[in-house]
């Protein structure tokens, strides 16, 4: 069996009195593209907010490459190997594209502020490494020609891809993508699918939240389905497409109406 890079066990999350996630189990294996789908409000983004340390779960365990992430501040979790993008793009708008990526790449070195001030050799080396990595990633997503443009001035699609590059700069064990295809036209969705495959082939495992079913079914190795905070199914795309509970969950609205 392949190793589990991200493992979420028996996750329970409550906001006020409401249970947002109820005993959810998930994992992402090395070298795979896993997808997390479900109707709106099923708790998908909450899963991301939990595993990246923004909220604390009421119960459960979160393991990255076997190490527990519970109680760690988000920046530590990011350095430990979980990097994410956001449903509504959240770039550092007033920074250039390359600075956006370099900021994340910086997290991997231990150079401190005093070293940077006096330009000690290690800090120079780390600085160079961050910038090189940032440029290399921009090239990888095809944005190197816009490296010195402000992130906020980039076209929508470039902003989405820049978020991916920024997350990759953390050298994550698992890349968490939150609806990366939102707002894309069919052509762009195909390109995105190829990009995600390329990312997987580079050795990053991917966990994908996405509403576009054809994209999900096309690129995912394994799909998990959330509904009302519970995992109702897990399997290959083909299995999921034929799962009656999943079909019911997605058609739930129509059922109520009839």
């Amino acid at each position: 069996m392949s190793t589990k890079l991200l493992e979420v066990k028996n996750l329970v999350v409550k906001f006020g009195g409401v249970t947002a996630l109820d005993n959810v189990n998930l994992h992402v294996n090395q070298g795979e593209i896993a997808a997390l789908i479900g109707p709106n409000g099923a708790g998908k983004t909450t899963v991301f907010n939990i595993v990246t340390g923004y909220y604390t779960p009421a119960e459960g365990e979160i393991l990255v490459d076997g190490k527990s992430m519970l109680g760690l501040r988000p920046y530590k979790i990011a350095r430990a190997g979980l990097a994410r993008t956001f449903q509504n793009i959240r770039l550092f708008g007033d920074m250039t594209a390359v600075e956006n990526v370099a900021t994340a790449a910086d997290a991997l070195n231990k150079s401190g502020l005093v070293g940077s001030l006096f330009g000690v050799p290690r800090s120079r080396r780390d600085e160079k490494a961050s910038m090189e990595k940032a440029h290399e990633l921009l090239k990888f997503i095809g944005l190197d020609h816009r490296a010195l443009q402000m992130a906020k001035n980039l076209p929508y699609g470039d902003q989405r891809r820049l978020e991916i590059a920024r997350a990759l700069a953390l050298n994550p064990k698992v890349l968490l993508l939150d609806e990366p295809a939102a707002g894309f036209n069919p052509q762009e969705k195909v390109e995105l699918g190829e990009l995600i495959r390329k990312i997987r082939d580079r050795g990053f495992a991917v966990l994908l939240i996405e509403h576009d079913m054809s994209l999900v079914m096309d690129i995912s190795d394994r799909v998990s389905v959330l509904d009302f905070g519970q995992k109702i199914a897990e399997g290959t795309p083909v299995e999921i497409q034929n799962n009656q509970r999943v079909i019911d969950a997605y058609l739930g609205v129509a059922e109520d109406a009839s």
Binding site: T52, F92, N109, G119
Partner: peptide, 26 residues
């Protein structure tokens, strides 16, 4: 000097969006 290096980027990232800066390992 600091502005053009790692600390400057970290500060700007915090100014732009503190939560995201934290998610990006700052």
């Amino acid at each position: 000097r600091l502005s053009h290096r790692k600390p400057g980027r970290a500060w700007e990232a915090i100014r732009e969006d503190e939560d995201v800066a934290e998610f990006m390992g700052v």
